[in-house]
Every structure is written in C-alpha cells, then in structure tokens.
Design a protein around this nucleic acid. Structure first.
Length: 444
RNA sequence: GCAGCAGUAGCUCAGUUGGUUAGAGCACUAGUUUGUGGAACUAGGGGUCGGUGGUUCGAAUCCACCCUGCUGUACCA
C-alpha cells in the first residue's frame, strides 16, 4: 500500500450541489402532484424543453468575453456556446417564437424542470434546483395576472399551508417608472441602483434602503456597498410614495378590481416589491412566507420569497416579429420543500417494506412464494436482500423502519404458519398464511 | 466577487506557553445470545488533525498561500 490515497476520487460535491434524501423527495413529489392537478384544472398545457439551450437564445449573457460562465454554466460546442438553462421563462420565449404559428393564442403552459445558476448558494438555495413555471403568452388581459396569483395560492393551500402562512405581494413596474419620471431621474444606471436598493427592503428595512439610495451602506461584516447617490429630498419623496399602499397606476387599479371579482384576499399591494429582473413591464408579484425558516442549527434565516413573477410584454418580441405580451409566475420547489419540512404538521407517508427473514437458503422457494403472494395483495415486502444471521436481518429491518418482519423458518414452514413480528410493539403471532394479509394490513 | 468566522474519526466535539504511538460521545463491525431489532456489557475497525509550502531538533498547535463551509453583503437575466 503506497501513497495511492492522493489519487482516490473525491467524495465531495461541487459547490452548491446536494444529494437529496427520500423525505425531501417525497414532499417534493407531493407538491408536484398537487401542482399538476391544479394546472389541469386551470387549463394549462404541460411542456418540457431541454436542459441546454444555445446561450444566445436564452439570455443576454453572451459568453464572448473573458467570463463565459458568469451566472450560467456554459460550454462551447463547435463554435457555438451552449448553456444550462437558468430559468424556464427564457426557454418558453424561445419556444413560443419558434412555434408561434402552431400554438394556440393565447398560449398557456406550465413546466417543471431543473435549472442551474452559477452563483453563490445560500440556505435552501442551491446551484441546481427544481422550478415550476406557469405562464400566459399572447394576452394583455390583466385577468391572466390575477389568475396566476389565485392559482399559486390554491397550490400552496393544497400543499398544506394556510392563508396566514404566506402572502402574495403585488406591485407594478409602472409605479417606480412614474416615480422616477416625477423626480426626474433619467440616468439608467442610477435607476437600476435605486431599484436594487428598494428590492432589499425586507432585509434591510427603510433605514438600510435609504442609505443605499444615498451614499451607500456598510454591512455587519464591515463591507461597504456604494449607493445610488440620490439627493435626500428625492429619497424622502420615494419613501413617502412607496409607503402608500393604494396604487395610482392604472394596471394595479384594474388588478384590484379583478382580484375583488375573484374574491381573492390573501395579497397586499406593496410598491417596494421590485424583483430585480429588467424584463418586467407591468404588474409583478412575489410569494412570501410569513413563518420563520430555520437553518440546521435552529437559527432563523433570511429566506426571501419562494416564488414570484410578473408581466413581461417584450420578451418574445426579442426573437422576431411576433407580438406576444406575456405574464408568468414561478416557484422554487426546493425552497418550498425546505420550508415545508419545518412545518411539523406536514408529514408524508413513508411506506416501508416488510422483511421476510431468511433462515435457510434451501427454502428460498417458500420465501419467494410468500413474497409473491403478499405483493399480489399490494403489500410492500421484500426478502432480506443480503446474507447473515437473524439478528443482522432484524437490525436491517429496524434500520429501514420496516413495520414488521415475517419469520418463516423450518418450524413455520412445516406447520404452514409464519410468525409475524410487529416491530413497533415487539409482539409476534403465529398466523395461517391465508390470514396473513389481513393481519399485516392491521399493522401497516 | 467582497468581508468576518470556522475546518481534528461517518456525525457532534475535546485537545495550543509547539514535545513520545491524537482523544471522547454517538454511529459502525464482531461477540455475550448457533431462530429475534430498538437496552446493557466486552472487544475491534476507522484520522496523512482541510490542502500545499515554510519556520523548528520536533507542528493538529506558529507563519504564508490555497480549498471548503457558515454568516453578512454584492450580483441574480
């Protein structure tokens, strides 16, 4: 044994990538089945697009400079750059542009898919995650926007959240647009800096945001962030205007009316919702949880929103001549799972197999017959999938949280009465094979 | 990316004025029980002390750089 160790493959995972355990996956499956059910009810088409797209068709991050992988994972294939998709909206725009003549107008589709982002991971936030998107393409009607909010709410309810667990914050790009016009901010980079500052209201509060609107802000670690350099008069105006929760913009007034028609109440108008994205053109919405989310160490963390969306009337047009105003919403499923796992009330059934213990390999035929019989009755069961003493088999059954083991040794085979041992209570009974199924159903 | 803190067994951690073969609990393996798990007892396996280089007679311990993690912050189509 020389120093081969150095050449052993690494057990580490790439930054921001994780293994996902069964419990998490079951909750995720549960959410997904709820989503599908509701999507059918709301009349959305199911669509899947590939993980990779040509980089130039899904975003502005053209990898023609020094850092082709800034934000996205990319590689070059025969002169053309490919990227793993970073969301499902950009591929949708590409899909619509490509299939415009065939698809119904308006086009309603939903999609579930993994997306990848080459950026710093945070709590419940990874570089590979599952996203759900539902979009209306080809309609300017704000009823679509409202319906998205109602629909997302129905999904969350179905997943076990109550109305007091979350709220949908609604705003509009038009608010800040008009505000900037009013106080005469024309510089685009200054506008962007101001929007970014306002987007941080949840974390930093008005004090922090005002610092960022002005000269800048020093964070807890002592790091300094440059501000938007607005005058203090303008900052005062912005604060005053955005704290006003009765909207002046036409689109929000109309949305309010439609929301009322739907009798939907679990929302608030919140002009400080910005959602970073530059492509939004009208109403924007964000789904925020109202309960605390904790990290592994039990510390409450800044979790942010679990989803959001808005109207983007120009995205599809970028591909050509088609007019396709659109609105959509997305949920980060893994973030929702992470949050839901912390709600105690939230439990998924984990149905584990019974274990038929092996006493004598030469009697394997008997074990297989028994297993077949039970499986035919839709009982989850397995013959101990290894070798070893009974004790080892019991430990295995215990470890996998099997509800019971079946002891079927020489004596039992002779008498035709297997022993059923309930692993929870520790009691065991000798049972006729024909009674076995009923007895097992009592336990599981 | 920037800043602060951290990295010792699978997990949680102890171990520094630098000093023989680096520890504990839990977990794991075997046995006490040749057909009985979750308890107890006994024994055992498992660490290049995050990595590389340096200082030193001697480094888990001191220094430099790097990697990784956490937290904050930036960016987030």
């Amino acid at each position: 044994m020389t120093k081969e160790k150095k050449n052993k493959p690494s057990k580490e995972l790439p930054l921001g990538f994780v293994d996902r355990q069964e419990k998490e996956l079951l909750i995720r499956d549960f959410i997904i089945s709820n989503i599908k059910e509701i999507m059918v009810k709301y009349g959305f088409q199911y669509l899947e697009t590939p993980s990779f797209e040509y980089t130039d068709s899904i975003g502005k991050f053209l990898p023609d400079k020094d850092r082709p992988d800034q934000g996205v994972f990319s590689f070059q294939d025969e002169k053309k750059w490919l990227s793993l998709r970073y969301d499902l909206t950009a591929p949708l725009a590409r899909y619509v542009a490509k299939n415009y003549l065939e698809i119904p107008k308006p086009f309603k589709r939903y999609q579930l898919g993994t997306v990848w982002r080459n950026e710093k991971p945070g709590p419940g936030r990874f570089r590979e995650f599952l996203q759900f998107d539902a979009d209306f393409v080809g309609t300017k009607s704000l009823q679509a926007d409202v319906e998205l909010c109602v629909m997302i709410s129905e999904i969350l309810d179905k997943c076990g959240l109550s109305k007091s667990d979350y709220i949908i914050k609604i705003s509009s790009r038009k608010i800040t647009e008009e505000l900037f016009k009013k106080i005469n901010i024309v510089d685009e980079s200054q506008k962007l800096a101001a929007l970014r500052a306002l987007d941080k209201i949840d974390r930093l509060g008005w004090d922090g945001v005002k610092q960022l609107l002005g000269k800048g802000r020093k964070d807890k670690s002592g790091d300094f962030t440059k501000g938007a350099n607005l005058s203090s008069e303008n900052i005062e105006i912005i604060e005053k205007e955005l704290k006003n929760k009765s909207p002046e913009t036409e689109d929000l007034k109309e949305m309010l009316k439609i929301l009322d028609d739907y009798k939907f109440k679990n929302f608030e108008i919140n002009p400080t919702v910005i959602r970073g994205l530059e492509y939004y053109t009208g109403p924007i919405f964000e789904v925020n949880l109202k309960f605390d989310v904790k990290n592994d160490k039990g510390k409450v963390i800044q979790f942010g929103s679990i989803g959001g969306g808005g109207r983007y009337d120009n995205l599809v047009n970028n591909f050509g001549n088609y007019e396709a105003p659109a609105t959509g919403i997305s949920i980060g499923l893994d973030r929702l799972v992470y949050a839901l796992m912390q709600k105690k009330e939230f439990k998924v059934k984990e149905s584990k197999p019974l274990v038929i213990c092996i006493f004598d390999k030469s009697a394997m035929k008997e074990y297989i017959n028994l297993q077949t019989l039970l499986r035919a009755a839709d009982i989850s069961v397995e013959i101990y999938p290894g070798e070893g003493k009974l004790k080892k088999q019991m430990e295995y059954a215990n470890k996998i949280k099997s509800p019971a083991v079946i002891l079927y040794g020489e004596n039992e085979i002779k008498s035709g009465k297997p022993t059923l041992r309930d692993l929870k209570s520790g009691t065991e009974k000798s049972i006729e094979i024909k009674e076995l199924i009923n007895e097992i159903k009592k336990i599981i």
